[in-house]
Design a protein around this nucleic acid. Structure first.
Lengths: 239, 239
DNA sequence: ACCTTATGACAACACCGTTGACCTGTGAAG
DNA sequence: CTTCACAGGTCAACGGTGTTGTCATAAGGT
């Protein structure tokens, strides 16, 4: 009867499309990422992707059951690109700090794709590799399993969440971003001290810190708390 | 020439639809919220909303220029609902904890609106009120202004970023969410210990914690670090 | 050389947001 | 009390979306 989707490994009949392209999961994912990079994540649709590939849109369903499957494959490729050049040093704090900043920077580099995949669990190769690596760092540092998992989740989700947030903001049309900056400069820094004393008192600081991402600060707070917790654990264990 | 959208304040001709409903911005926002609550956020489309209102879909464009405008109006109403019942107790830690959880829960209650508005600065009434309130809590606790702003920024962005992340996840089609749960149960909890020792060792914990958001844990870590910092500051000041 | 069948192509379905043209009741002005 | 401009509701259409059932054909195994 022939299933609609044949697993990548079992494929052998490489029949070219009318326009002479030989399709594959890899080619489709790469083309999708290129499409997103060049024209934004709104540009990703089955039909556009088909056009960019030089194939009928419905051909894509021979490789991915739904658009969702395709998105997961894209997400995993992004994880791979983030993790591939990462080398743990053995210093757990430094390693996590480095990795968090890398994830965040990766998201900013690929804003549209990051926003698309940050909230998905793919269960694919690269993601598994990343989970294993981070859990390894935490457990080797001395966190007991439940604690390691808790911190793992908080840490990873925070990096992904800030990545998505900051890159969504970075991807705003220029006009919209300028309008936002204007709001801070006009609305917030002109609120009178008698009705809004706290904003008025901190307005210069508010406007100054507005331009950068708060992710580094947030990550530092989270890691500080984790380090403190680890000292407690070690003390309790050593006594 | 007659603008497409007339500001709410200037409206006076209340012409009923064929089905006898008198439209207004408020009615449209309320109906949209009801639709989302009752049938999930996928149920929100201009056409469905028109049907639910008893009006032609295109009528909605007499009140909101785009779907985005409508979603922002919905988001604004949600911020209102989040902030309105909030009463600070004077205990800064408890107050921030409560507020963060409230923001996060509010985002989850209306995933689509939350995802859209999390990375935007509106400068509207409720947003200003929230900024003033949180800064007030931090400054009264004893944080000096630059520190108060830094922590404010990290805290708020964390709540919004997690809100957006978790609500994007919550907005997934049911099938996709079930597939994700399945991934944790099948893929991750069955990896062999020799290739993936850290995942294998923590699999039960991983599966247990994946069902909930990691926001509470992340928030707790951030607040713990902030409290530690405050003790330092007080000590330095007191000496 | 033949046959199976994987895989690409096509057409159709039901939806979506948005817009321009049209029509009509409202409310104010005379 | 009538008139009349026009706000605002309606209709039809455009171009887009994901997805599926059906068909055609070339590739590969025999």
């Amino acid at each position: 009867m022939s299933e609609r989707v044949v697993p990548a490994a079992a494929r052998q009949r490489r029949r070219p499309t009318k326009q002479g392209v030989v399709l594959s999961q890899e080619l489709i994912v790469e083309t999708a990422l290129r499409l997103i990079e060049e024209h934004g994540s709104d540009a990703l649709s089955v039909r556009r992707l088909g056009r960019a590939l030089g194939a009928d849109p419905s051909s894509i369903y021979r490789y991915f059951r739904h658009t969702d499957d395709l998105l997961l494959a894209i997400a995993d490729e992004l994880i791979g690109r983030t993790m591939r050049p990462w080398r743990p040093t053995g210093e757990w704090l430094a390693d996590l700090r480095e990795l968090g900043l890398r994830v965040h920077a990766g998201a900013l580099a690929q804003p549209r794709a990051a926003a698309l995949s940050a909230y998905r669990v793919t269960g694919r190769a690269y993601e598994i590799q990343a989970v294993e690596a981070i859990l390894g760092v935490l457990r080797r540092a001395g966190f007991p399993d439940p604690e390691a998992v808790r911190i793992y989740h908080a840490f990873v989700d925070q990096a992904l969440a800030f990545g998505a947030l900051d890159s969504a903001n970075a991807a705003l049309p220029r006009a919209a971003r300028e309008a936002e900056a204007q709001v801070w400069r006009t609305v917030y820094s002109r609120l009178p001290a008698d009705t809004h004393p706290n904003i008025a008192a901190t307005a210069p600081h508010l406007v100054a810190t507005m331009r950068g991402s708060s992710y580094p600060a947030a990550q530092e707070l989270l890691l500080t708390a984790a380090a403190a917790r680890l000292r407690e654990i070690r003390a309790a264990h050593g006594s």
